[in-house]
């Protein structure tokens, strides 16, 4: 297995005491990974850097010029145009509202459902999980029409809540399964201990289990935030009567025309709209990186 080969080269964090030579080797060896990681990551982010550099180029330089990442002529026109064309000023607050609502809806429903389903003895569990997994494979893109009719009948058609519900509904399965898998892995004793202390079901969930699930919360938040942030079709369809409520994902499509695309404007818009996601990532990565290490004492 490739995994095991990799680990052969991976020393444990505290290098075991040994002869000096070996000790030094242990100190150097981890750094060898950088020889691989640095060029690999540079190559990896090249298209992203390219996007940033295109945002500072003129359309003709971007399309006709060479592959240089440094623009010959720095221009800020693209950002100017992006700001007005994609209506960043108007749409940013909407996008934040929409994305946060989606994340909250997903977290609330999937954490509770995942916790409930993590109990192995729950009657009907198999059926429910079976249905969840089965629906994972139904393509969702084209089911927008029935969803639209439903939201319309609920009277939520011209608000971001309707859009958020429509966005959160179909993506629930993944987070539920993640939470379920996570909670199922937590030792029962921990829960029993809480119960002995007199905590009820809800209290155990809120005070003991939920804080432990930070890595999953972080993952679910991050991924759903990104999807919601970039989402296009759903916010478009559910704000038809109230275009002032649209999100950036919709605004970004203003760069696409029947007769060609404003690539540099799009690149500038993409840069602006990526910044919040990167910030969210930096915030959240602590949760799934530091996570619960050491928290679960057995």
């Amino acid at each position: 297995m490739s995994t095991t080969e990799l680990v052969r080269d991976t020393p444990a964090p505290p290098a075991p005491a040994g002869p000096d030579r070996r000790n030094r080797w242990y100190r150097i060896r981890p750094n060898l990974w950088h020889l691989f990681l640095i060029p690999f990551c540079l190559l990896w982010v090249y298209p992203f850097i390219w996007m940033i550099s295109a945002a500072f180029k003129s359309p003709s330089e971007m399309l006709l010029g060479g592959l240089s990442l440094i623009p010959d002529d720095w221009t800020f026109d693209n950002f100017d145009r992006a700001w007005t064309t994609a209506k960043f000023g108007d749409y940013t607050i909407n996008t934040i509202t929409f994305s946060i609502t989606v994340v909250l809806l997903v977290l609330l429903t999937s954490a509770t459902a995942g916790y409930a389903l993590s109990r192995p003895d729950l009657p009907g569990k198999k059926v429910i999980v079976g249905i969840l997994i089965a629906t994972m494979f139904i393509p969702h893109g084209y089911t927008i029409i029935p969803v639209f009719l439903l939201i319309n009948d609920l009277g939520l058609n011209n608000g971001l809540l309707g859009a958020a519900l429509a966005q959160a509904g179909p993506v629930l399965v993944v987070p539920i399964l993640l939470f379920m898998g996570f909670f199922a892995g937590i030792p029962r004793d921990l829960e029993d201990a809480a119960r002995v202390d007199g905590a009820g079901y809800v209290r155990t969930f809120l005070r003991v289990m939920l804080p432990l699930s930070r890595p999953v919360i972080g993952t679910v938040t991050l991924l759903n935030f990104i999807t919601a942030w970039n989402s296009f079709f759903i916010p478009l369809v559910f704000t038809l009567g109230a275009p002032e409520l649209r999100t950036l994902g919709v605004g970004m499509f203003s760069f696409f025309g029947q007769e060609g695309t404003d690539w540099t404007g799009l690149a500038a818009g993409a840069c602006i709209s990526t910044v919040p996601i990167v910030i969210v990532f930096l915030f959240l990565q602590r949760t799934f990186v530091e996570g619960i290490a050491g928290a679960v004492k057995t």
Binding site: N94, T97, N158, A242, R286
Partner: peptide, 28 residues
């Protein structure tokens, strides 16, 4: 630190949501 991050995020969410709360349901 993590907990503080989460609290901070929660507070920010709350502010953003109330700021635009009226947008959520939409006026019929």
């Amino acid at each position: 630190r993590t907990r503080r991050t989460l609290r901070w995020a929660a507070a920010a969410s709350a502010v953003a949501l109330t700021a635009t709360g009226c947008n959520l349901v939409g006026s019929g």
